[in-house]
Design a protein around this nucleic acid. Structure first.
Lengths: 206, 206
DNA sequence: TTGCTTGTTGGACGATCGTACAACAAAGAG
DNA sequence: CTCTTTGTTGTACGATCGTCCAACAAGCAA
Protein backbone atom coordinates (compact mmCIF):
# COMPACT_ATOMS: atom_id res chain seq x y z
CA UNK A 1 0.00 0.00 0.00
CA UNK A 2 1.93 2.93 -1.30
CA UNK A 3 -0.01 5.84 0.14
CA UNK A 4 -1.62 4.25 3.21
CA UNK A 5 -5.27 4.99 3.75
CA UNK A 6 -5.25 8.78 3.70
CA UNK A 7 -7.90 10.44 1.59
CA UNK A 8 -6.48 11.01 -1.86
CA UNK A 9 -8.03 14.32 -2.75
CA UNK A 10 -7.24 16.95 -0.06
CA UNK A 11 -3.69 15.64 0.05
CA UNK A 12 -2.92 15.83 3.73
CA UNK A 13 0.88 15.91 4.17
CA UNK A 14 2.44 12.58 5.08
CA UNK A 15 5.06 14.27 7.28
CA UNK A 16 6.26 17.70 8.22
CA UNK A 17 9.69 19.13 7.75
CA UNK A 18 11.26 20.61 10.84
CA UNK A 19 14.22 22.81 11.52
CA UNK A 20 17.22 20.54 12.06
CA UNK A 21 17.90 21.63 15.63
CA UNK A 22 14.24 21.17 16.60
CA UNK A 23 14.25 17.67 15.15
CA UNK A 24 17.49 16.88 16.94
CA UNK A 25 15.94 18.00 20.20
CA UNK A 26 12.82 15.92 19.56
CA UNK A 27 14.96 12.83 19.05
CA UNK A 28 16.94 13.57 22.21
CA UNK A 29 13.77 13.94 24.24
CA UNK A 30 12.37 10.74 22.75
CA UNK A 31 15.59 8.97 23.70
CA UNK A 32 15.28 10.25 27.26
CA UNK A 33 11.72 8.93 27.47
CA UNK A 34 12.70 5.51 26.14
CA UNK A 35 15.62 5.39 28.57
CA UNK A 36 13.27 6.27 31.44
CA UNK A 37 10.68 3.70 30.44
CA UNK A 38 12.74 0.75 29.21
CA UNK A 39 16.14 1.30 30.76
CA UNK A 40 19.54 1.21 29.13
CA UNK A 41 18.97 -2.24 27.63
CA UNK A 42 15.72 -1.23 25.93
CA UNK A 43 17.08 1.66 23.93
CA UNK A 44 17.32 1.15 20.17
CA UNK A 45 17.04 3.08 16.95
CA UNK A 46 13.58 1.74 16.27
CA UNK A 47 12.22 2.31 19.76
CA UNK A 48 13.38 5.91 19.68
CA UNK A 49 11.94 6.43 16.20
CA UNK A 50 8.55 5.12 17.30
CA UNK A 51 8.66 7.28 20.42
CA UNK A 52 9.44 10.36 18.32
CA UNK A 53 6.81 9.46 15.71
CA UNK A 54 9.44 9.32 13.00
CA UNK A 55 10.93 6.77 10.66
CA UNK A 56 13.93 4.73 11.84
CA UNK A 57 16.16 6.09 9.13
CA UNK A 58 15.94 9.59 10.53
CA UNK A 59 17.89 8.70 13.64
CA UNK A 60 20.90 7.84 11.57
CA UNK A 61 20.47 11.07 9.65
CA UNK A 62 20.97 13.20 12.76
CA UNK A 63 23.28 11.08 14.91
CA UNK A 64 26.21 8.81 14.19
CA UNK A 65 24.65 5.81 15.83
CA UNK A 66 22.95 5.17 19.13
CA UNK A 67 25.96 5.98 21.24
CA UNK A 68 26.14 9.54 19.95
CA UNK A 69 22.44 9.98 20.63
CA UNK A 70 22.82 8.65 24.17
CA UNK A 71 25.73 11.02 24.74
CA UNK A 72 23.69 13.95 23.45
CA UNK A 73 20.77 12.88 25.62
CA UNK A 74 22.99 12.75 28.68
CA UNK A 75 24.29 16.24 27.93
CA UNK A 76 20.75 17.53 27.52
CA UNK A 77 19.36 15.90 30.67
CA UNK A 78 22.40 16.93 32.69
CA UNK A 79 21.86 20.47 31.44
CA UNK A 80 18.24 20.39 32.53
CA UNK A 81 19.24 19.13 35.97
CA UNK A 82 21.84 21.87 36.31
CA UNK A 83 19.24 24.44 35.30
CA UNK A 84 16.80 23.14 37.91
CA UNK A 85 19.51 23.39 40.54
CA UNK A 86 20.48 26.90 39.44
CA UNK A 87 16.90 28.07 39.66
CA UNK A 88 16.54 26.62 43.14
CA UNK A 89 19.75 28.34 44.22
CA UNK A 90 18.58 31.65 42.78
CA UNK A 91 15.21 31.32 44.49
CA UNK A 92 16.93 30.83 47.82
CA UNK A 93 17.99 34.46 48.00
CA UNK A 94 21.38 36.04 48.62
CA UNK A 95 22.46 34.23 51.79
CA UNK A 96 25.34 31.90 50.72
CA UNK A 97 24.57 29.07 53.08
CA UNK A 98 20.88 29.14 52.20
CA UNK A 99 21.85 28.86 48.54
CA UNK A 100 24.07 25.88 49.24
CA UNK A 101 21.30 24.24 51.26
CA UNK A 102 18.87 24.80 48.40
CA UNK A 103 21.33 23.08 46.08
CA UNK A 104 21.44 20.08 48.39
CA UNK A 105 17.71 19.88 48.99
CA UNK A 106 16.88 20.12 45.32
CA UNK A 107 19.39 17.40 44.48
CA UNK A 108 17.22 14.97 46.44
CA UNK A 109 13.87 16.36 45.30
CA UNK A 110 11.67 13.95 43.31
CA UNK A 111 12.39 15.70 40.02
CA UNK A 112 16.11 14.87 40.23
CA UNK A 113 16.44 11.86 42.53
CA UNK A 114 14.33 9.90 40.08
CA UNK A 115 15.03 6.24 39.30
CA UNK A 116 13.91 6.89 35.75
CA UNK A 117 16.57 9.57 35.36
CA UNK A 118 19.18 7.15 36.59
CA UNK A 119 18.75 5.09 33.43
CA UNK A 120 20.20 7.95 31.37
CA UNK A 121 23.23 8.16 33.64
CA UNK A 122 23.77 4.40 33.54
CA UNK A 123 23.51 4.27 29.75
CA UNK A 124 26.07 7.06 29.56
CA UNK A 125 28.40 5.58 32.17
CA UNK A 126 28.43 2.29 30.30
CA UNK A 127 30.11 4.08 27.40
CA UNK A 128 32.68 6.10 29.34
CA UNK A 129 35.31 3.41 29.79
CA UNK A 130 35.45 2.23 26.20
CA UNK A 131 34.95 5.48 24.23
CA UNK A 132 37.57 8.20 24.69
CA UNK A 133 35.32 10.89 23.23
CA UNK A 134 32.62 10.09 25.76
CA UNK A 135 35.15 9.96 28.56
CA UNK A 136 36.19 13.47 27.55
CA UNK A 137 32.57 14.61 27.60
CA UNK A 138 32.16 13.14 31.06
CA UNK A 139 35.28 14.90 32.33
CA UNK A 140 34.02 18.17 30.90
CA UNK A 141 30.55 17.94 32.41
CA UNK A 142 31.92 16.78 35.75
CA UNK A 143 34.33 19.71 35.79
CA UNK A 144 31.46 22.10 35.10
CA UNK A 145 29.35 20.62 37.85
CA UNK A 146 32.25 20.82 40.30
CA UNK A 147 32.99 24.42 39.32
CA UNK A 148 29.45 25.44 40.21
CA UNK A 149 29.82 23.72 43.54
CA UNK A 150 33.17 25.40 44.14
CA UNK A 151 31.58 28.80 43.61
CA UNK A 152 28.84 28.08 46.12
CA UNK A 153 31.42 26.85 48.63
CA UNK A 154 33.59 29.88 48.05
CA UNK A 155 30.66 32.17 48.82
CA UNK A 156 30.29 30.30 52.10
CA UNK A 157 33.82 31.16 53.09
CA UNK A 158 35.70 28.02 52.14
CA UNK A 159 39.25 29.21 51.41
CA UNK A 160 40.42 28.81 47.88
CA UNK A 161 43.17 26.38 48.84
CA UNK A 162 40.61 23.89 50.15
CA UNK A 163 37.89 24.58 47.62
CA UNK A 164 38.84 21.92 45.12
CA UNK A 165 38.94 19.11 47.63
CA UNK A 166 35.80 20.35 49.32
CA UNK A 167 33.93 20.37 46.02
CA UNK A 168 35.16 16.86 45.19
CA UNK A 169 34.02 15.67 48.60
CA UNK A 170 30.58 17.31 48.46
CA UNK A 171 30.06 16.16 44.90
CA UNK A 172 30.95 12.58 45.82
CA UNK A 173 28.70 12.59 48.87
CA UNK A 174 25.77 13.99 46.91
CA UNK A 175 26.33 11.56 44.04
CA UNK A 176 26.58 8.60 46.38
CA UNK A 177 23.42 9.55 48.25
CA UNK A 178 21.61 10.32 45.01
CA UNK A 179 22.62 6.99 43.50
CA UNK A 180 21.49 4.97 46.50
CA UNK A 181 18.28 6.96 46.72
CA UNK A 182 17.51 6.01 43.12
CA UNK A 183 18.53 2.36 43.49
CA UNK A 184 16.87 1.70 46.85
CA UNK A 185 14.21 4.36 47.38
CA UNK A 186 13.01 2.60 50.53
CA UNK A 187 16.34 2.45 52.34
CA UNK A 188 16.45 6.05 53.47
CA UNK A 189 14.46 9.16 52.66
CA UNK A 190 15.29 12.28 50.71
CA UNK A 191 15.00 14.22 53.97
CA UNK A 192 17.61 11.99 55.60
CA UNK A 193 19.89 12.42 52.62
CA UNK A 194 19.51 16.19 52.87
CA UNK A 195 20.21 16.13 56.60
CA UNK A 196 23.33 14.04 56.10
CA UNK A 197 24.63 16.36 53.40
CA UNK A 198 23.85 19.52 55.35
CA UNK A 199 25.57 18.20 58.45
CA UNK A 200 28.59 17.42 56.31
CA UNK A 201 28.55 21.00 55.06
CA UNK A 202 28.39 22.25 58.65
CA UNK A 203 31.70 20.56 59.39
CA UNK A 204 33.19 21.75 56.13
CA UNK A 205 32.31 25.41 56.50
CA UNK A 206 32.76 25.97 60.23
CA UNK B 1 31.62 -32.23 9.83
CA UNK B 2 30.23 -34.38 12.59
CA UNK B 3 33.31 -35.12 14.63
CA UNK B 4 35.62 -32.23 13.75
CA UNK B 5 39.22 -33.12 12.97
CA UNK B 6 40.25 -34.95 16.13
CA UNK B 7 42.19 -38.15 15.67
CA UNK B 8 39.74 -41.02 15.68
CA UNK B 9 41.75 -43.74 17.33
CA UNK B 10 43.07 -42.60 20.74
CA UNK B 11 39.71 -41.03 21.40
CA UNK B 12 40.67 -37.90 23.25
CA UNK B 13 37.60 -36.63 25.16
CA UNK B 14 35.74 -33.84 23.41
CA UNK B 15 34.79 -32.21 26.72
CA UNK B 16 35.06 -32.81 30.42
CA UNK B 17 32.25 -33.06 32.89
CA UNK B 18 32.53 -30.82 35.89
CA UNK B 19 30.80 -30.59 39.21
CA UNK B 20 27.81 -28.29 38.78
CA UNK B 21 28.97 -25.64 41.26
CA UNK B 22 32.42 -25.53 39.70
CA UNK B 23 30.92 -25.03 36.25
CA UNK B 24 28.63 -22.33 37.59
CA UNK B 25 31.62 -20.54 39.05
CA UNK B 26 33.55 -20.86 35.79
CA UNK B 27 30.67 -19.24 33.92
CA UNK B 28 30.45 -16.46 36.50
CA UNK B 29 34.15 -15.74 36.22
CA UNK B 30 33.94 -15.78 32.44
CA UNK B 31 31.05 -13.30 32.64
CA UNK B 32 33.14 -11.04 34.87
CA UNK B 33 36.00 -11.11 32.36
CA UNK B 34 33.71 -10.30 29.44
CA UNK B 35 32.15 -7.48 31.42
CA UNK B 36 35.61 -6.11 32.22
CA UNK B 37 36.81 -6.35 28.64
CA UNK B 38 33.75 -5.41 26.58
CA UNK B 39 31.55 -3.53 29.02
CA UNK B 40 27.88 -3.98 29.77
CA UNK B 41 26.88 -3.69 26.11
CA UNK B 42 29.27 -6.43 24.98
CA UNK B 43 28.00 -9.16 27.25
CA UNK B 44 26.10 -12.00 25.56
CA UNK B 45 25.50 -15.71 25.91
CA UNK B 46 27.88 -16.50 23.09
CA UNK B 47 30.67 -14.19 24.26
CA UNK B 48 30.54 -15.73 27.72
CA UNK B 49 30.49 -19.25 26.30
CA UNK B 50 33.57 -18.54 24.18
CA UNK B 51 35.34 -16.98 27.17
CA UNK B 52 34.56 -20.02 29.30
CA UNK B 53 35.55 -22.44 26.51
CA UNK B 54 32.11 -23.96 26.52
CA UNK B 55 29.18 -24.31 24.18
CA UNK B 56 26.51 -21.57 24.14
CA UNK B 57 23.79 -23.94 25.23
CA UNK B 58 25.47 -24.54 28.56
CA UNK B 59 24.84 -21.00 29.74
CA UNK B 60 21.10 -21.55 29.53
CA UNK B 61 21.54 -24.85 31.34
CA UNK B 62 22.93 -23.15 34.45
CA UNK B 63 21.25 -19.74 34.41
CA UNK B 64 17.81 -18.48 33.49
CA UNK B 65 19.09 -16.04 30.93
CA UNK B 66 21.77 -13.40 30.87
CA UNK B 67 20.22 -11.28 33.57
CA UNK B 68 20.43 -14.04 36.14
CA UNK B 69 24.06 -14.62 35.22
CA UNK B 70 24.86 -10.92 35.54
CA UNK B 71 23.16 -10.85 38.94
CA UNK B 72 25.16 -13.89 40.06
CA UNK B 73 28.32 -12.29 38.74
CA UNK B 74 27.63 -9.10 40.67
CA UNK B 75 27.07 -11.12 43.85
CA UNK B 76 30.32 -12.97 43.29
CA UNK B 77 32.41 -9.90 42.51
CA UNK B 78 30.87 -7.96 45.37
CA UNK B 79 31.71 -10.86 47.64
CA UNK B 80 35.31 -10.85 46.45
CA UNK B 81 35.54 -7.10 47.07
CA UNK B 82 34.12 -7.51 50.56
CA UNK B 83 36.61 -10.26 51.26
CA UNK B 84 39.49 -8.07 50.10
CA UNK B 85 38.28 -5.31 52.40
CA UNK B 86 37.87 -7.69 55.32
CA UNK B 87 41.39 -9.02 54.89
CA UNK B 88 42.78 -5.48 54.81
CA UNK B 89 40.86 -4.60 57.97
CA UNK B 90 42.12 -7.72 59.70
CA UNK B 91 45.69 -6.99 58.65
CA UNK B 92 45.45 -3.51 60.18
CA UNK B 93 45.52 -4.88 63.72
CA UNK B 94 43.22 -4.31 66.65
CA UNK B 95 43.14 -0.49 66.76
CA UNK B 96 39.58 0.48 65.61
CA UNK B 97 40.50 3.64 63.79
CA UNK B 98 43.37 1.95 61.99
CA UNK B 99 40.95 -0.72 60.84
CA UNK B 100 38.55 1.89 59.52
CA UNK B 101 41.38 3.67 57.73
CA UNK B 102 42.46 0.40 56.15
CA UNK B 103 38.92 -0.08 54.90
CA UNK B 104 39.01 3.36 53.28
CA UNK B 105 42.47 3.01 51.78
CA UNK B 106 41.72 -0.40 50.30
CA UNK B 107 38.49 0.89 48.77
CA UNK B 108 40.59 3.14 46.56
CA UNK B 109 43.39 0.68 45.92
CA UNK B 110 43.89 -0.36 42.28
CA UNK B 111 42.32 -3.77 42.83
CA UNK B 112 38.97 -2.25 43.76
CA UNK B 113 38.88 1.22 42.23
CA UNK B 114 39.20 -0.39 38.82
CA UNK B 115 37.33 0.93 35.78
CA UNK B 116 36.99 -2.66 34.58
CA UNK B 117 35.20 -3.61 37.77
CA UNK B 118 32.80 -0.72 37.27
CA UNK B 119 31.34 -2.48 34.24
CA UNK B 120 29.96 -5.22 36.48
CA UNK B 121 28.30 -2.66 38.72
CA UNK B 122 26.83 -0.78 35.78
CA UNK B 123 25.46 -3.94 34.20
CA UNK B 124 23.85 -4.81 37.51
CA UNK B 125 22.52 -1.32 38.20
CA UNK B 126 20.89 -1.26 34.79
CA UNK B 127 18.66 -4.15 35.91
CA UNK B 128 17.74 -2.86 39.38
CA UNK B 129 14.94 -0.51 38.38
CA UNK B 130 13.03 -2.89 36.14
CA UNK B 131 13.47 -6.25 37.95
CA UNK B 132 12.06 -6.52 41.46
CA UNK B 133 14.10 -9.63 42.24
CA UNK B 134 17.31 -7.81 41.37
CA UNK B 135 16.23 -4.76 43.34
CA UNK B 136 15.79 -7.05 46.33
CA UNK B 137 19.26 -8.49 45.79
CA UNK B 138 20.69 -4.99 45.66
CA UNK B 139 18.93 -4.01 48.88
CA UNK B 140 20.28 -7.11 50.57
CA UNK B 141 23.87 -6.62 49.48
CA UNK B 142 23.77 -2.92 50.30
CA UNK B 143 22.42 -3.72 53.75
CA UNK B 144 25.24 -6.19 54.30
CA UNK B 145 27.86 -3.70 53.19
CA UNK B 146 26.40 -1.03 55.45
CA UNK B 147 26.25 -3.42 58.40
CA UNK B 148 29.97 -4.09 58.09
CA UNK B 149 30.59 -0.35 58.04
CA UNK B 150 28.33 0.16 61.06
CA UNK B 151 30.36 -2.35 63.03
CA UNK B 152 33.63 -0.59 62.22
CA UNK B 153 32.11 2.75 63.17
CA UNK B 154 30.74 1.35 66.40
CA UNK B 155 34.19 0.11 67.35
CA UNK B 156 35.41 3.65 66.85
CA UNK B 157 32.94 4.96 69.39
CA UNK B 158 30.12 6.20 67.19
CA UNK B 159 27.01 5.91 69.40
CA UNK B 160 24.43 3.45 68.26
CA UNK B 161 21.81 6.14 67.71
CA UNK B 162 23.97 7.80 65.07
CA UNK B 163 25.45 4.66 63.59
CA UNK B 164 22.90 4.12 60.86
CA UNK B 165 23.15 7.63 59.46
CA UNK B 166 26.91 7.63 59.80
CA UNK B 167 27.17 4.41 57.85
CA UNK B 168 24.87 5.74 55.14
CA UNK B 169 26.98 8.87 54.91
CA UNK B 170 30.34 7.07 54.80
CA UNK B 171 29.03 4.54 52.32
CA UNK B 172 27.72 7.28 50.03
CA UNK B 173 30.95 9.26 50.22
CA UNK B 174 33.06 6.20 49.46
CA UNK B 175 30.77 5.13 46.63
CA UNK B 176 30.76 8.60 45.10
CA UNK B 177 34.54 8.89 45.27
CA UNK B 178 34.98 5.36 43.98
CA UNK B 179 32.62 5.97 41.07
CA UNK B 180 34.33 9.18 40.00
CA UNK B 181 37.73 7.58 40.43
CA UNK B 182 36.67 4.85 38.00
CA UNK B 183 35.01 7.19 35.50
CA UNK B 184 37.71 9.90 35.49
CA UNK B 185 40.90 8.37 36.81
CA UNK B 186 42.81 11.54 35.99
CA UNK B 187 40.63 13.98 37.89
CA UNK B 188 41.92 13.20 41.36
CA UNK B 189 44.10 10.48 42.83
CA UNK B 190 43.36 7.54 45.07
CA UNK B 191 45.45 9.23 47.74
CA UNK B 192 43.28 12.36 47.58
CA UNK B 193 40.16 10.23 47.79
CA UNK B 194 41.56 8.50 50.87
CA UNK B 195 42.48 11.83 52.47
CA UNK B 196 39.01 13.21 51.84
CA UNK B 197 37.35 10.16 53.33
CA UNK B 198 39.63 10.03 56.36
CA UNK B 199 39.09 13.72 57.10
CA UNK B 200 35.35 13.07 56.94
CA UNK B 201 35.79 10.26 59.44
CA UNK B 202 37.74 12.62 61.72
CA UNK B 203 34.74 14.88 61.96
CA UNK B 204 32.38 11.97 62.39
CA UNK B 205 34.24 10.24 65.21
CA UNK B 206 35.57 13.19 67.22
C1' DT C 1 32.48 -55.15 30.26
C1' DT C 2 27.40 -53.09 29.84
C1' DG C 3 23.87 -49.87 30.83
C1' DC C 4 22.17 -45.60 32.74
C1' DT C 5 22.30 -40.86 34.01
C1' DT C 6 22.90 -36.37 32.69
C1' DG C 7 26.33 -32.80 31.64
C1' DT C 8 27.32 -31.05 27.21
C1' DT C 9 27.20 -30.08 22.44
C1' DG C 10 26.00 -27.57 18.30
C1' DG C 11 22.92 -25.95 15.25
C1' DA C 12 18.14 -24.32 14.04
C1' DC C 13 14.85 -20.86 14.86
C1' DG C 14 12.54 -16.37 14.94
C1' DA C 15 13.22 -11.82 16.64
C1' DT C 16 15.68 -7.73 16.72
C1' DC C 17 19.60 -5.18 16.14
C1' DG C 18 22.29 -0.97 13.40
C1' DT C 19 23.19 0.55 8.92
C1' DA C 20 22.64 1.91 4.20
C1' DC C 21 20.29 3.58 0.37
C1' DA C 22 17.10 4.67 -3.45
C1' DA C 23 12.80 6.92 -3.87
C1' DC C 24 9.54 10.27 -2.40
C1' DA C 25 7.74 14.75 -1.16
C1' DA C 26 7.57 19.16 1.58
C1' DA C 27 9.07 23.75 1.51
C1' DG C 28 11.18 27.60 -0.42
C1' DA C 29 13.31 30.08 -4.48
C1' DG C 30 12.65 31.90 -8.82
C1' DC D 1 3.46 28.13 -11.76
C1' DT D 2 8.10 25.13 -12.03
C1' DC D 3 12.41 23.82 -10.32
C1' DT D 4 15.65 22.71 -6.79
C1' DT D 5 16.94 21.31 -2.39
C1' DT D 6 17.04 18.10 1.12
C1' DG D 7 14.42 16.41 5.08
C1' DT D 8 12.10 12.11 5.38
C1' DT D 9 10.45 7.64 4.40
C1' DG D 10 10.45 2.65 4.17
C1' DT D 11 12.67 -1.29 3.34
C1' DA D 12 16.30 -4.60 2.50
C1' DC D 13 20.42 -6.44 4.25
C1' DG D 14 23.68 -9.00 7.11
C1' DA D 15 24.93 -9.66 11.77
C1' DT D 16 23.85 -10.96 16.24
C1' DC D 17 20.80 -11.68 19.75
C1' DG D 18 18.41 -15.35 23.37
C1' DT D 19 16.14 -19.54 23.41
C1' DC D 20 15.31 -24.18 22.47
C1' DC D 21 16.09 -29.11 21.88
C1' DA D 22 17.42 -33.59 19.92
C1' DA D 23 21.59 -36.06 19.83
C1' DC D 24 25.91 -37.24 21.76
C1' DA D 25 29.19 -38.88 25.16
C1' DA D 26 31.64 -38.71 29.77
C1' DG D 27 31.55 -40.80 34.01
C1' DC D 28 29.68 -43.79 37.33
C1' DA D 29 27.26 -48.01 38.97
C1' DA D 30 26.74 -52.71 38.58
Amino acid sequence: MPLSSSRPSPHQPAFRRTRPDARRLALIEACARVLARAGAAGVSVRAIAVEAGVSPGLVGHYFDGIEALVAATYAHVEGAVAETLDRAVEAAGPEPRARLDAFVTTTFAPAIADPQLLATWIAFWSLVTARPAIAAQHDEQYAGSRARLEALLGDCGVPEAERRRAAIAVSALLDGLWLELCLSPGCFTAEEAGDIARRFLDGLIA
